[in-house]
């Protein structure tokens, strides 16, 4: 199966996934007890004001009709208007999502850059000191709660040894770079603003590390396990019997094959990272989707919650597509036979 037909087929499936997600989130958000009109208008609002607010928001119409209106809007790319911020939900998401993506991607890159080499070394020097140390780090990463670890790092590197910033995306007083992608690192480079770039990078280190740490352990263990499997394979013995150097045996023959089973995990890890970002963003006052969603839930902001859920599920499906495409790149058997 070719790359293009895979992509097309997945994009068709995407429509069904989004439709399903829309139905489920709409249903759930309307089953939750609580009256958004009451929340917006306040406790002391008169019955008349409440009715007015309801009418304005379309909440007075029957639920089925509300759903039809919502789907119509969705089809035209409109996620509705936030009850809380009174701005279009799509615009709000576009504003906050890049911060979360920047954090998530940075964390994923960090987790891979540390986790993969650590996993490879643990497998090569199985039961040696590196393997034992990596095991401790992995278990710590998997079992340490983000909120505790985040606060501990802030205490250590911001309060006791003040070398890293503990909150926000950029130093107060340094202007955020002009918005192009919403990624501060990218935008500041495009604008040629190195001061903003370094400041954003410093601000990214702690939250990204906290977020990476949990997945680091899982990635290390997975890479270690699949490396141990692959190192037993006959083709690794062939490579050794042919006198290839140790680095060629490990990097050219063992690692690429060991990465294949790990790709699924990396896809899942990225999903996890975005979800873990909610807590991390709260701890580090990171202005991303996490904080936005938490506020939306607190105010029963249905359009915002549904908008976020749809975007998030879209993201999940796209990540899975990316995982499958990565398989095709890494494994010729999948690429050529499908």
């Amino acid at each position: 199966m070719s790359l293009i037909s895979t992509i097309l087929r997945r994009l068709v499936l995407l429509v069904f996934v989004v439709a399903g997600v829309a139905i489920i989130t709409f249903t759930i958000s309307h089953l939750i007890p609580g009256d958004p009109a009451q929340l917006i208008a306040g406790d002391k609002a008169s019955a008349q004001t409440l009715a007015h607010v309801r009418q304005e928001l379309g909440l007075d119409k029957p639920v089925t009709q509300q759903f039809v209106i919502y789907v119509k809007q969705l089809l035209s790319g409109d996620l509705g208007q936030s009850l809380r911020t009174r701005r279009p939900v799509a615009g709000d998401i576009a504003l906050f999502l890049p911060a979360t993506l920047e954090l998530g991607i940075a964390a994923l890159v960090m987790a891979i850059m540390i986790g993969v080499p650590l996993g490879v070394l643990s497998a090569i020097y199985k039961d040696g000191p590196v393997d034992q140390a990596a095991r401790v780090v992995s278990v710590a990463g998997i079992s340490m709660p983000v909120f505790w670890f985040g606060l501990a790092l802030i205490l250590l590197f911001y309060v006791k040894i003040p070398i890293l910033p503990g909150s926000g995306r950029i130093t107060l007083g340094i202007a955020a770079p002009p918005r192009i992608t919403g990624f501060f690192l990218v935008d500041s480079l495009v604008a040629g603003d190195l001061k903003a770039f370094w400041s954003s990078l410093y601000h990214l280190i702690l939250p990204a590390f906290v977020l990476a740490f949990a997945n680091l352990g899982i990635i290390t263990r997975q890479i270690r396990a699949s490396m141990l499997d692959v190192l037993q394979e006959d083709y690794v013995r062939t490579a050794r019997a042919n006198g290839l150097s140790r680095s060629a045996v490990i990097l050219r023959h063992a690692l690429p094959n060991a990465l294949i089973p790990s790709v699924t995990l990396l896809g899942l890890a990225f999903g996890d990272l975005l979800y873990g970002a909610v807590l991390t963003e709260t701890i580090f006052a990171w202005p991303g989707m996490g904080s936005y969603v938490v506020s939306s839930i607190q105010t029963l902001d249905f359009p915002a919650i549904m908008g976020f859920t749809i975007v998030a599920s879209l993201g999940y499906v796209l990540i899975n597509l990316a995982v499958d495409l990565t398989y095709m790149v890494l494994d010729p058997q999948i690429r050529e036979l499908g």
């Binding site: 394979e233 083709y235 062939t238 490579a239 290839l244 050219r252 690429p256 010729p332």
Partner: peptide, 20 residues
């Protein structure tokens, strides 16, 4: 190895790297 002495193994199915 490979230069002066090389080995042909029993299982040709797995003796080549599947991804290259």
């Amino acid at each position: 190895r490979g230069r002066q002495v090389s080995t042909i193994f029993q299982e040709p199915m797995n003796a080549l790297n599947p991804t290259r």
